[in-house]
Computed example of a mutant assay.
Amino acid sequence: MTLAFHASRARSRIVDDLDAAIVRDPAARSRVDVFLNSPGLHAIWAYRLAHRLWLRGGLYAVAARLLMTFTRSVTGVEIHPAARIGRRFFIDHGMGVVIGETAEVGDDVMLYHGVTLGGRSLERVKRHPTVGSRVTIGAGARVLGPVYIGDDVQIGANSVVVKDVPSGAIATGIPATVRFPDRPAEDPYEAMFRDPALWI
């Protein structure tokens, strides 16, 4: 693959990220505004570079860790460069987000500030969550351990998730309880606005 191909693909992903941020952030005014002022996006872009370095191993992996340590000090977002994160990922506000080494995140996922995708084991195994696509995780939520979060799930603010959550479900509380939208064909995201517990 040529350098021009890689540059084109990188530009495409940056535009995807910018557009995803504009769709999800009502305060965003333009691509330029988001490009300059979104610490969540800055952290994601640093992660994407660090992840490429991490995969090369050796001193590149050391550089990846250093890059993400610097990024954490600037953005307040900590993402291990070994984590695997899909396209159009968005972190709103950013501060306090932690994504662990073995975390896997699908496409079109949104995290609010203070979210942790953390581990519950000190063993060198898969110890962080796997998050499907089109998932929203509310501010301060903790998703802990090698749990599976299905597609189209909504996790409420400050919830603590330690068990799998099936696709299309809503999880709220400490520990989180799982339910499904109680209106036929209701979008889980829209259902959030009827449930105050999601925002506490």
Rank of each mutant, 00 (worst) to 15 (best):
D187Q: 04
G173C: 10
L144N: 08
Y112F: 15
A171K: 06
G156K: 06
Q154R: 14
G86A: 05
T2F: 11
R120Q: 07
Y148L: 12
V125H: 05
V160S: 03
V98S: 08
E101V: 14
G132K: 15
M1D: 11
R29I: 12
A4F: 13
H128M: 02
H93Q: 13
R9T: 12
G138N: 07
M68Y: 06
T177C: 05
T75H: 01
V115L: 09
P81C: 04
I200P: 03
D187P: 07
A141M: 03
S167Q: 12
K163V: 08
E101S: 09
I174R: 13
A176D: 10
R134M: 01
A197K: 14
V15Q: 11
S121Y: 09
L18M: 04
F5H: 10
R9K: 13
V32A: 15
F5A: 14
A191V: 06
R24I: 04
Q154H: 01
A4P: 07
M192W: 09
N37G: 15
E123Y: 09
D182Y: 01
L41V: 09
I200N: 13
L36H: 03
M192D: 10
G100F: 12
S167K: 10
P181H: 00
G106I: 08
G118W: 02
M95F: 15
R9Y: 13
P188N: 03
K163F: 02
Y148I: 14
A63R: 13
G58D: 06
V161K: 12
R142V: 12
I137Y: 03
V74P: 07
I85G: 05
R11G: 01
L198G: 11
H80T: 09
M68V: 06
P26S: 01
R124C: 03
V32D: 14
N37Y: 13
T2G: 13
M95W: 15
P175M: 11
V74E: 11
A27W: 08
R11S: 11
T69V: 07
D19P: 02
I99R: 03
D164Y: 12
T75M: 12
A43I: 07
W45A: 11
I44Y: 09
R65M: 08
L3C: 01
A139D: 03
F35G: 07
P166R: 01
A7P: 00
T69Q: 15
P166F: 01
D151E: 13
S30I: 11
I14G: 03
T2W: 05
L198K: 07
I149F: 02
R56S: 06
A191D: 10
I137F: 04
E104W: 05
Y47G: 00
D17S: 13
D92Y: 11
